[in-house]
Amino acid sequence: MFRPKTRYVALPSPRAGVGEEIDRLICPKCDTSLEPARLTAALGVCYRCGYHFRLRAPERIAMLVEPGSFREEDQAITATDVLGFTDSQPYAKRIEQSRATTGANEAVTWGEATLAGHRLVLVVLDFAFMGGSMGAATGEKITNGIERAGQSRLPLLIVSASGGARMQEGMLALMQLAKTSAALGRLAAAGVPYISLLTDPTMGGVTASFASLGDVIIAEPGAMIGFAGARVIQQATYETLPDGFQTAEFLLAHGMIDLVVPRQELPAVLRQLLDLYAPTAAAPGLQLQRQAKKTAAPAPAVTR
């Protein structure tokens, strides 16, 4: 039986997403008919089986940061068809369509925001815009975000969702792997923390560049993460792929990521990470520590 599977869910946000107009949503994992209001309240996680629906960038941002704190940058940067690429339809037309359906100019949105009292640079990819693929403009915006984090010494959080490099931009797209990675190399050398959050799906050139370079790498449960697609691997090798191949849990078991965190727990985990990696006087974590020190037994004298 063919039934279109809905993988996106719209959460309340200032900008309308690809949101579903229908009254009920079917969970692609457990086939349960879900009530949109309950699903929204559950942050787009199936309240029956825990399946994590894909989120549009505006919804992801709204879910993560303090209301009204996000200041978007580079909103006007948009993809251009440098190669004059045409497959079943011209790339220029694809860009136009993606802009119309998503309301965004590119597959990535970035800006400064406040999360749990911490200022940070937040970069969010949107799979609804040409599969979250990385073209030159995408890579430029991501790199601008990374460089801002370095200049302002603000922690960086990148939320990935991408099929990889954007083929319609040929080698200009491939070179964005080098560009974003080089920028992250400098950020690491400057001692500014980078948290990479991998969401469904994160594949190809994006995994082989910025997505896997986090100081801490988190993934949402069930997210598909890898380099080559399972179909390509099967065609090339005739291998039988193990159960759960390329899922977040599979990567955790193989030592490739640090944590698998359900969406509901993300704010708490991110808060803890920011408190640990980017302590500031204003951050609650540190205040607690200071208070604890006051009440503890007198510390032995320390000479520096």
Partner: peptide, 26 residues
């Protein structure tokens, strides 16, 4: 291209490539 195999994925082919991009660029 890099080898599309299950073992390559299990041992982090994307991680290995990304590390090289950083190392070579610096």
């Amino acid at each position: 291209g890099a080898f599309p195999g299950a073992g390559a994925e299990e041992r982090g082919i994307a991680w290995a490539i990304a590390e090289n991009l950083v190392a070579l660029s610096a």
